[in-house]
Design a protein around this nucleic acid. Structure first.
Lengths: 339, 339
DNA sequence: TTGAAAGCGGTACCAA
DNA sequence: TTGGTACCGCTTTCAA
């Protein structure tokens, strides 16, 4: 079926070792033999069995990427970035979507460990640090992305979420908003960081969130538009109602915006809206959405590169945490100056 | 480092074979031995080396998925569907994005073949059928999705693209449009099928596209909004100008809609717009977009299941082509009845 | 410059 | 019920 080293060796009357050496560009092979072997490899369309090689070298040249939801634009961009970083090095990538299910995530991680991936990149849906201990036991290097675990030292690449919250809220304040509400996400680091940034921005001005001005978006990243809609309805029922909302992600912001428009109010005149992610076709919305960009592609690329570096360096490194600076992209949904 | 069968066997004073049998639930093992082995496996946190197993069984229990652009919602949904189908069976999935580059795609396919995937699922960016021959040579079953190659018999899962074009155009006609234009895509089967459906719908009514009413969208799936914008500008310069446009995908439709609105015309009153894909937050746009749904998740699932079936059945099957029926989702961008 | 032998971590087959 | 042996396809080591 598949051509093996053995077949080529037999055909040419040389040993398997010789062929193997040609394959890996060893120098101790005569030019003549090399050419004969190469020629035959071409003819037979030979492809080395990478699994077999991995078994003996102890390096599979594969990595695993686990994300909560591959359909979420943030994570698909991350995946693209990781792929890009690995491609040049001949690595292949297992990608798995945990559907925000910690148990499923754990299972997928175990599976990848069983496949002896050289490293793992994980945007975790876990509540505990348990499963990472398992990875550490196996001595497999891993990089966390997007979601951090306080008090747990690990390689991490993500955006500075406190800065995200601060920038968004500062911006709303600059646009003249004085009753700024926040639709926050679940108890994971990005949402918590953004909340902290939001509070910080208010505190800087001697303010604190008015009662009811921080609302929890019911779901996580999926169906964010639905839960954003619901959360916004709560905010709309307050009096006085907010004149600005910072939403912890874009889908939520879209839902919030829809709720505002549906209730007959205007964006940004009555309520300004800022989201985070900048990955949804923000420019083509009813009201183009102001959003904090996280450069998810580059998060993926950096994570891939870091993972590669960890694999290269035999000696265990001190965990490295890299925070990228976010970028505010201003669009119509928040521009109230000069109205 | 990693625990091996051998370690467990040594610890317990049994043979490697016995441990291996327990691992795979063979019946010819005494209950007592089984329990001892199981206990020790738990203690040591044993995980079988799947690569080693693959080497001897000839089955890697991995598959490869190659798509032109993982960030495109259509393909990320497909990926999700494939994952879902494979997960239950203990398969892992290599995912690779070819960035619409045929050469890169070929390279990634070769890589996956070298990793001895049990099957491949490919949304191809190729112009020729060449690279598929290579896969056939290796006797690796594969399933094409989304894009077909006329005259090349292969397993295929996709949507009935002619029906897509027909439904969209019929709908525009029903809404009172009489000068229906089409922004078409590149020379690949989905775009060609949709074009054919569009022509068919007109022909059915004794019509044919007016001169200049079929415009080619400059790019493929990425940056479709930009090229859709440009294509629409051309249509707007015609006189009489179209009163309805069917765009071969959603990003293009978004771009087209923006061009219409920017030029001061109204959607759908002046020009009705229909897209295809239904995966972009269509409901939250300035004008919610009517779109033909392809159920990309289910395309992925069906492809995954078919691939599994191909792996199971030793005997080569006759290529199977499955066309799913599309679904028109009507929103504001095309509703002109009763205005 | 070449190749024989051992072994990576498992499984298959058959004999004990 | 248990286990010895061979082997999957490749690399490593070391001797010829």
């Amino acid at each position: 079926m598949a051509v093996r080293l053995k077949d080529i060796a037999r055909d040419l009357g040389v040993s398997v070792v010789t062929v193997s050496k040609v394959l890996r560009n060893h120098t101790d092979i005569s030019e003549e033999t090399r050419e004969r072997v190469l020629k035959r490899m071409k003819e037979l369309n030979y492809r080395p069995n990478l699994a077999a090689r991995a078994l003996v070298t102890g390096r599979s040249c594969t990595m695993g990427l686990v994300v909560p939801d591959l359909v979420h634009p943030f994570f698909s961009h991350v995946a693209k970035g990781v792929s890009k970083a690995l491609r040049r090095k001949g690595y292949s990538l297992f990608i798995s979507s945990s559907e925000e299910d910690p148990q499923l995530e754990q299972q997928e991680i175990e599976q990848m460990l069983a496949r002896r991936v050289d490293a793992l990149i994980i945007a975790s849906a876990q509540w505990t640090v348990e499963s990472f201990r398992r990875i550490e036991e196996q001595q497999v290097p891993f990089v966390l992305i997007d979601r951090q675990f306080p008090g747990f030292a690990a390689n991490f690449i993500g955006v500075d979420d406190i800065a995200v919250g601060r920038m968004a809220t500062d911006h709303l304040f600059d646009q003249g908003c004085r009753r700024i509400a926040h639709i926050r996400g679940p108890e994971v680091s990005p949402a918590l960081g953004r909340l902290e940034g939001y509070r910080g921005s208010l505190a800087k001005r001697g303010l604190s969130p008015a009662p009811g001005h921080v609302v929890l978006s019911r779901t996580g990243d999926d169906a964010g538009d639905v839960s954003g809609y619901e959360a916004m309805l709560k905010l709309l029922s307050l009096s006085p109602r907010p004149d600005g909302v910072f939403c912890y992600n874009d889908p939520t912001a879209l839902g919030a915006m829809k709720a505002i428009l549906d209730s007959g109010l205007r964006v940004p005149e009555d309520i300004a809206v800022v989201g985070c992610g900048n990955v949804i076709y923000d420019t083509l919305l009813r009201v183009p959405l102001t959003s904090v960009d996280q450069d998810s592609l580059s998060i993926g690329e950096k994570a891939g590169k870091l993972a590669l570096a960890l694999v290269e360096s035999k000696t265990p490194q001190r965990p490295k945490s890299i925070l990228l600076e976010p970028n505010l992209v201003v669009r119509a949904s928040s521009q109230r100056r000069g109205l």
